[in-house]
Design a protein around this nucleic acid. Structure first.
Lengths: 125, 125
DNA sequence: CTAAAACCTGACGTTGACGTCAGAGGCAAG
DNA sequence: CTTGCCTCTGACGTCAACGTCAGGTTTTAG
């Protein structure tokens, strides 16, 4: 068996993908609607995914948590898939990176403030 | 002059507060609507604030950025004002703290992932 | 074969922190 | 007095990532 014909990989349906990634079925359909995740279709029209779709969705979740929009993720997906980037994409990557770093700093500051209050209210019931 | 009669503090109107805190006038009214910030009123009905309202709004912004809702902030405001807390409030404080800490960790992980990609795409144009 | 479970396509609802617009006063300057 | 800026109270609009419901088809288990 050749590399191209290598894996007649077992395709999975949307429910299994959703459970695997820990998201709802609705969410997976939404990702497709946003152009994040294109699925094959069975003859009857059901979505069929490869195993790695689960990891991809986990990655989406991570980026969502970091504040990227689905639009932004679609624009940056080629950077992962192909490793190839143009100047605009590299600029976007850095912009997002800086934004996230700033957010981390903000959160850390808020955390410090909460910790102060907690310390006070614990010694000062 | 006594402590109680001390400062016939200069009261400021909503526009000055908003500019000072770097938010919109609409936002300040919204905070009042949510019970975060109660203003005095002039005879004609205009809102009048003390200087420290600006710092308070900055604090709200910081908590918003940390993911607290206005409802949660109102529930926790007594912890700041009076320094007095009950068990429920202390539990909420810790819950929010833990949530923020988890978020920081998530963001840091996302940041690391972005940095990987940036490193690759920079050496690999 | 049949019933349950899973899937499909719309399409409207939700949440939070505001933006924005309309129409009506209020306030200091010239 | 009037011009121009500020403020007021509603009340509807926005955005993103889904939730939820309706009504119908497909797959699976027994």
């Amino acid at each position: 068996m050749t590399a191209t014909a290598a894996a007649a990989e077992r395709l999975i349906r949307i429910g299994e993908v959703a459970r695997g990634a820990g998201v709802s079925v609705r969410a997976v359909r939404y990702y497709e609607q946003q152009g994040l995740l294109i699925a094959e279709r069975s003859p009857s029209g059901q979505r069929l995914y490869r195993q790695d779709a689960i990891a991809l969705i986990r990655f989406f979740q991570q980026m969502f948590a970091a504040g990227l929009t689905s639009r932004r993720i679609t624009e940056l997906l080629p950077c992962w898939d192909s490793g190839h980037t143009d100047a605009e994409q590299r600029a976007m990557l850095r912009a997002e990176r800086d934004r996230i770093q700033a957010k981390v700093d903000d959160l850390q500051a808020a955390l410090d403030r909460l910790d102060e209050v907690i310390a006070v209210t614990d010694t000062h019931p």
